[in-house]
Design a binder for these strands. Sequence first.
DNA 1: GGCTAAAAATTAACACCGTTAAATAACGGT
DNA 2: ACCGTTATTTAACGGTGTTAATTTTTAGCC
Lengths: 225, 225
Amino acid sequence: MPPLRSPRVHEREALRREILDAARKLFAGEGYARVTMRRIAAEIGYSATTIYHHFPDKLALFHAICDEDFDRLRVAFAATQAAADPVERLRLLGHGYLAFAEAHPNQFRLMFMTQLADAERQSLVTASADKRGDPARDAYALLVTTVQAAIDAGRIRPAWREAQLAAQTLWAAVHGLCALDLDHGNDPWVAWSPRPERARALVEAVLAGMTLPPSPPDPAIGNEG
Amino acid sequence: MPPLRSPRVHEREALRREILDAARKLFAGEGYARVTMRRIAAEIGYSATTIYHHFPDKLALFHAICDEDFDRLRVAFAATQAAADPVERLRLLGHGYLAFAEAHPNQFRLMFMTQLADAERQSLVTASADKRGDPARDAYALLVTTVQAAIDAGRIRPAWREAQLAAQTLWAAVHGLCALDLDHGNDPWVAWSPRPERARALVEAVLAGMTLPPSPPDPAIGNEG
DNA sequence: GGCTAAAAATTAACACCGTTAAATAACGGT
DNA sequence: ACCGTTATTTAACGGTGTTAATTTTTAGCC
């Protein structure tokens, strides 16, 4: 049964939701720096200080939004594990990362493109230390695990048969497309190809270079050096 | 012979240089947003408004610094054109980008990882429109030209035989390694492989996926579709 | 040297920002 | 009806990029 919540608590949670939704809409539309606390408050008919009774500061508000959207990344990544072929799972992971960055550019920016001071990063890391290494909750660990599965299936070329190295190669590639798109996607001095084409070209190039086709039925032929 | 410059003009140019150098140091160290005009001025012992007698606004100052740093990248890129093999030139361009980011991380941050609003970037780009498209002065145009040479030499696989697409694929890949390294190179939750290994693995993966070996001496075999 | 006009640099201010302390309004329990 | 807690607002602080007005410095000329 649901826990008892006084009307007071109920209203408080409702307002918190209102703040989150208004802030997400503004952040997503105009970016973190462009949106002011006063404008978020005006959007829901309150004064700016009210927000500070629900979130310590602007960054914490953004972080709360980010946390909610990070669940979507985990869901998207988990869905890739349905594929039987480990290389196909890698392909889906790459496109999952790309799709997440496209759908939630500002959240992506905060999670992967924000330069933090060492102290900030330290506290951020220790705060989520419990998830680390668990493929079900740590996206990077899931990537490494999938790469290892591909290695075990004999689908990775010799030069990339170290799970960390191969994982970091794929991650760097797809991250580069996302980062370039966010920071320079509107630069007129680059005639950008359509993003879907770029995404496909990049993932296929890296996978084609790194992986091998499924080994032939006759195992006597496949051995090397 | 050098043009006549009164001491007045000489001093003016010297101060402009002082502003540029101080601003580059601060921008590179702490990022565009965190550096204030007042602090740049204090760094060289002037008041903030003095900067506005040499640059229209903060963004124009940033733009002037970027222009100078892009020249250095162009010099590094020009050296790669000595190689006869176009695919080798692509390899050198990739590693040139990686080496530039490693050697000048702060300038790289300034040039490629500084997030600007669309309007800001628009005005920034129109200011340097004269260089655009000239491979000798535009690093991206040089990359596209080199890719086109590889296509013309029959060294690019069919799926990437559009110079812009292939150029953007290679750029995204190497940019991703640089960006990830700068923003997360010290994150303890990733067991990073040594950077030289990652750089080599990434460039070789993309090139292996995108390119073809030199066509065999017998031209009758190489044709397809 | 002393005067003048232009250039250079500064101070003061504006409108905005994130944030906080103090003050006020609204509410639940007794 | 009162009290204490909570919710919310107003006013303010120190900061930002930028600009108008003002002061200081400089160059050229008598």
